[in-house]
Design a protein around this nucleic acid. Structure first.
Lengths: 219, 219
DNA sequence: AATTATTTTTAGGTAAATCTAAATAATTTA
DNA sequence: TAAATTATTTAGATTTACCTAAAAATAATT
């Protein structure tokens, strides 16, 4: 099933809007895609014809089985590229979205799977959203990037960004591992470093790079 | 100047066909782009209107100043992505072209420059073609990837693929450096390893990975 | 040089993805 | 529930990048 960039963007938008409730409305889609309702209706008909959607005129739309599969593939690519941009190319976590919007449409499955392996099969992207694996399965508990957590909050480390030797060494040195509880003390604007307290011991400071590699959940 | 994917493909095709002689013909372009001459004429008019080409009806076409700049930018992206795929994602040098054809159209300049830095500012892609730098300047002497050189040929090492510590250590161990002369003895199909003789000493065997990291010129 | 062959352009048409304006269905409100 | 409002669809155009077929320009050949 080969989709155009435009078709992929519709599938992705429906996927994101569908999350909580059932059907997605034409107007919601038009707003989300910065297009007009009439254009949406056209595309819904086309994608329904391709068996990607379940759509009844005037009743909104939801993804069909094949549509879900396609959506997960696009989301997987988007989030893997975001991870790559932050972890390898030193982009800030807040400047990767637009580039990933372009990269997610590169079609090679082999590329995506090799990228995934190269990155160490990360489970969460730099915004804390789960990355579907090559079978479309992803974690359900939402995690946060440590750098996004507000001061005073207590969190528990769930996973780390990559399995690189350098990162693991640094974590051991700082006594941080999966399951470690820590409290955010304060954040410094200048270099985005974060002051934390691990297991109620004296505070330490960790760099922006390290904070971005830690995924946590609220406790 | 924002170009569509199709426009970029025309600019790139003209760039490659233009290399030796002066003007590129409509038929040449049609063949190269797998399209029809009539379509080419349409696009040539459009790109001329955008001041990218110098085009006289029936006289063929060549890139203008702005067209050259755009072409170099596309070629730069294509070759950097090829380098990335081979050097980081472990693609074979012969399976990267199609994926790079897609990646070269990603527009972010910041992405390309960061990728360049991440790769260690390589001067040649995995096929030995020079990679333009961010100002569009590239090496003029054509180099070959060692893995492409036929048995019996004597070559001189010109540059290495990356500056990684692991690669440099391996090269020191094998007594290979910039300027080293070596002869290709034979190549093994099974694992693509290459038997070579360094400075007329007894032969040694180098892996596919190492051979792909070495760029050489004929002596 | 005149004819033939080739190349290139023009003219008119198609499919994808968009648009505006008008018509129709669904929902809300008085 | 009937009218008013909102949401959605239909109808008809537009733009981009293609196409085919025919006309025009250039090049090759006798």
């Amino acid at each position: 099933m080969n989709l155009t960039v435009s078709e992929e963007n519709y599938i992705k938008a429906i996927f994101h809007l569908q999350q909580a409730e059932g059907n997605v409305s034409t107007n919601q889609l038009a707003a989300s895609l910065h297009t007009k309702p009439a254009s949406v209706t056209d595309m819904l008909k086309k994608l329904t014809h391709k068996s990607l959607l379940e759509y009844e005129p005037y009743q909104g739309v939801r993804l069909g089985k094949e549509g879900k599969k396609q959506a997960l593939s696009i989301v997987r690519k988007h989030r893997l590229w975001e991870f790559f941009l932050v972890d390898k190319l030193q982009f800030g976590w807040d400047e990767v979205h637009d580039v990933a919007e372009e990269l997610e449409h590169i079609s090679s499955k082999k590329l995506v799977d090799k990228l995934d392996a190269y990155l160490g099969f990360p489970k969460f992207d730099p915004h804390g959203d789960p990355i579907p694996d090559s079978n479309g399965i992803m974690a359900t508990i939402r995690q946060f990037n440590l750098i996004d957590v507000k001061p005073k909050v207590v969190v528990e480390v769930c996973s780390v960004g990559s399995q690189s030797a350098e990162l693991l060494e640094l974590l051991r040195h700082k006594n941080i591992g999966i399951g470690t509880e820590l409290q955010i003390i304060r954040k410094f604007e200048f270099d985005h470093s974060v002051e934390i307290s691990v297991k109620n011991k004296p505070t330490i400071t960790i760099s922006q790079q390290l904070a971005q590699a830690l995924f946590v959940k609220l406790v």
